[in-house]
Design a protein around this nucleic acid. Structure first.
Lengths: 178, 178
DNA sequence: GTCTATATGAAGATAGAC
DNA sequence: GTCTATCTTCATATAGAC
């Protein structure tokens, strides 16, 4: 995962991976059928963990509370896993067709959860956005973008960053402060 | 550019490029000293075009108007160049150290322009955001995210998308509608 | 379960004829 | 300016000894 995140899947050789874990290249094939499976397993595990974390959130009847919980989870989950997230976004095109389809389904399922929250809030009149689909994509892009700059131990703590992003997201969807 | 965007820099061979443009591999070296220069030139041209387009925007004394103009430019510029943008974001790690530094400087210069607008608006009390740096990164991430889903000729026109994103961004930074 | 050795192919880049 | 041919290195993956 570290090597793929740093150099990219295509640029990393099985020999590099073997050197990094302290075996010869041939020995890797006792653990994986091929290089593609290494990438797919990383991405499938990542998306599975994300969906599981989402499923563990308590049900929130209030759309604002639900959005806040979703946003906090998304931001924290991503900020804590820079390598996994980088791979999940950058290496989609290096998946085989079958594997790509599976990962895309998981991603779609996750996005649908956010859109459901936004739709509920729009129906109840607590969110003011013109298009739930665009708002979904905008929210995810904004929150995931934290990984382009945030580093643990920097100017701001993760809690502070969560708070600031939540305020911006809350305003973006036109929700009143709680 | 098309091949790099589709398969990734590392996964594209000089032979593939040659086949695509209709020459033999050796002939490419009459046009470029090496593969790295192809990537760097694409990215440098892209960032240069972006900075030039930004520089051509009229000066707006009102921070809200300035932000709106910046957002429209950013969104349109990116939506119209999916391949260039994809490469500019995904292939940074495949640049040599020197080339990476040059591209990063250009990106930083661009981000600084947005942050200056946000700072001015905060000082004048027309924006309500906790941190101008985070707001800068959030705004850019949100707008650039349009490339993950927008396609010309889809459900929404670029003008409609511009309008919807602007409303969300305006609300996100706490600005009143004009 | 790891090793060495290797099969097989493709990579970036260059040389030199035309 | 393009070609063919080639240098050199590296790739994924497998075979078979230990």
């Amino acid at each position: 995962m570290r090597l793929f995140a740093q150099h990219g899947y295509a640029a990393v050789s099985m020999r590099q991976i073997a050197r990094d874990v302290g075996v010869q290249a041939g020995a890797l094939y006792n653990y994986t059928p091929d290089k593609q499976s290494l990438l797919f397993d990383l991405m499938q595990t990542h998306m599975g963990d994300l969906l599981a974390a989402r499923a563990e959130l308590p049900m929130e009847p209030d759309p604002v509370a639900a959005l806040k919980a979703f946003a906090r989870l998304h931001l924290r989950f991503h900020a804590e896993r820079p390598d996994e997230v980088f791979i999940a976004y950058m290496e989609l095109r290096n998946l085989s067709d079958d594997n790509f389809t599976k990962i895309e389904e998981m991603r779609r399922a996750y996005e649908d959860q956010l859109e459901a929250i936004l739709r509920a809030g729009i129906e109840q009149g607590v969110f003011r956005v013109a298009d739930s689909k665009i708002a979904t994509m905008a929210a995810i892009a904004m929150l995931t973008g934290v990984n382009t700059w945030f580093r643990q131990g920097g100017r701001l703590s993760l809690s502070e960053v969560e708070q600031i992003y939540w305020e911006m997201l809350r305003q973006a969807v036109g929700a009143q402060s709680e």
